[in-house]
Amino acid sequence: MRIGLLGTGPWARAAYAPALFGHPGVEFAGVWGRRAEAATALAGEYAVPAYGDVDALLAEVDAVAVALPPSVQAELAVRAARAGRHLLLDKPLAVSVAQGRAVVAAAERAGVASVVFLTTRFQKEPEAWIEEQAATAGWFTARAQWLGSVFTSDSPFAGSPWRREKGALWDVGPHALSVLLPVLGDVRQVVSAAHGPADTVHLVLDHATGASSTLTLSLTAPPAAAGADVELRGEAGVALMPGSSEGAVPALCRAVDTLLTAARTGRPHACDAAFGLRVTEILATAQARLTADGEECLSGGPGRGKATVPRRRG
């Protein structure tokens, strides 16, 4: 499979380019970026072509890997799917439900495979733990903390405009949901949503299995407090998600493996674009709840009730 890379930012350079270059089952076929000079520089590091036009790249590949802001990703994913190209996408799939639905619809109409790269779901130890817990009945509640220090450290993502605008809910929220949903089931309601310090968000979710979960999400945690933790409690006792012994590149190589398998077999992976859309729907509901409750608090109005998460049709 010939895969082209769309994007030249820190994540493209640190994860996508080395994963595509080093994967034995694909050919890293070229780079397109919104800045031509950045695309030329990144392509030059791997001796692959740089493209100044997206359609020119699409004409030369079987699939695209997208490392771009989510609003840009959604638009280009639709374009690539319509050209019959398989999709390796990043989280979040989109920052609006309409954009996410457009990606899913385009992929389904074209019959192309899609995988959304959610790092934890493709890391060896956490992936095995998630599968084990999903097969265990009787979970009562879960606690997930995804605390980053992107805006309180020298992170290469500190200047990311979309992260500045959308915050932790949209950046690390998908990671937390990617762990909780396969174990506790779909989210039926956003029971509550509240702002914490800076971009920190606290959520309480009601799941289809009857379990509840609490999420604390932040990109502004002190560096010494940063980290990701998931704890499950239920009839089986207490289960803590293990850390990973590997970084993003091996995990991304596994995501490439799943794309190859989905393209070959026609069977969708659990982290396909439809799953990415479901995550977007939940995040959009939480965002609406945060906005509405914030406005009511400022006006001195009463708090709102539970927010039911709408399901897409079909």
Rank of each mutant, 00 (worst) to 15 (best):
A128Q: 14
S155G: 03
T119W: 07
P182W: 15
L20N: 03
D171N: 11
V48Q: 02
H86T: 11
P10N: 10
R233E: 15
R289A: 14
V179K: 06
W162Y: 15
L252C: 05
R304K: 13
A43K: 11
G111A: 07
D206E: 15
A102D: 03
D154F: 00
T120E: 14
D53V: 11
A12K: 10
A251D: 04
G167I: 06
W139C: 12
W129F: 15
W129G: 04
Y51Q: 14
R34A: 09
A39P: 04
T291Y: 13
M241T: 02
T136W: 13
V112L: 11
T152G: 05
L93M: 04
E127G: 07
A251W: 00
F28M: 14
R35G: 00
V54F: 08
V112C: 04
G300M: 09
A63G: 13
A15R: 07
D171K: 05
R163W: 00
R233V: 14
E37I: 09
E45A: 06
A135C: 12
R264Q: 12
E165Q: 02
S153I: 05
G33D: 06
G159P: 01
R188I: 09
V279N: 09
R13G: 06
R101M: 08
S71W: 10
A107R: 00
V61K: 05
A263L: 05
E131K: 15
F117Y: 15
R233S: 15
R313K: 13
S178D: 12
A102V: 00
G243Q: 14
A158T: 01
L260A: 10
A98F: 03
R289P: 00
G52A: 11
A67E: 04
M241L: 15
W32Q: 02
R304M: 14
E231N: 10
D272L: 05
Q99G: 03
E108D: 13
A228M: 11
